[in-house]
Design a binder for these strands. Sequence first.
DNA 1: AATTTATACATAGATCAATGATGTATTAAT
DNA 2: ATTAATACATCATTGATCTATGTATAAATT
Lengths: 113, 113
Amino acid sequence: MNQKELLKGTLNTIILRLLSERGRMYGYEITQCVKNMSDGKVMVKEGSLYPALHKLEADGHVSVEEEYIGKRVRRYYKLTEKGKSHVELALTELHQFLDTIRNLISTKPWQTA
Amino acid sequence: MNQKELLKGTLNTIILRLLSERGRMYGYEITQCVKNMSDGKVMVKEGSLYPALHKLEADGHVSVEEEYIGKRVRRYYKLTEKGKSHVELALTELHQFLDTIRNLISTKPWQTA
DNA sequence: AATTTATACATAGATCAATGATGTATTAAT
DNA sequence: ATTAATACATCATTGATCTATGTATAAATT
């Protein structure tokens, strides 16, 4: 699959939706969760995820809590109030986009234009 | 919508699928067709379309026939045999991708990972 | 005990499809 | 006449993602 290009624009919404459902996640957990949920078809790379999380934080959509598991740090992310309202919009828009593309590539008996 | 990024990777497949259904189209016709079929939600820009068509031609997926309408040239594109077999694969992959993303962002009662 | 794999963070530079900007020219509409 | 629509084209810019690289701890394997 042309994953690299097709995925563009979807990562932020995927992250927000996961946080919306699970409340609190750390970066590595997100990569594994997306991998598992997509049956290995979507592999979010660290070089994509961490910058995306940092940007979501900078934009005020998520907040961070650091925790130590032994000597290893974990940075837990959760939605802010701003993030919670934004995720609704982002999900709606992405769903509409998916519907639009599906409509464009689905075979139909009628001519549309 | 974050159209600009979301659309990445979808244009070639959209073009191929249109040619597959309609047999023969010229560039400007494709832009208008996509606009109409998507109810104005997807606006393929000339700066995207023409380079994409040239690349599809270079890759042997489409062939070209020039026609003159008065003094104005039209370049009609149609699928080659190679293009016909490729479009099947491209459509399957894009459908699977759309399903995968939809699955990732759809709210579910069960936890997946 | 030593090595490998998994966990967990991070960043800088490269990639490449789509766009914006710009150009030329013909035809139709106002 | 002037503007809008039709119809092609190309080049530089953009920007999300990836590759490559780095550091470090914990668990599993040999």
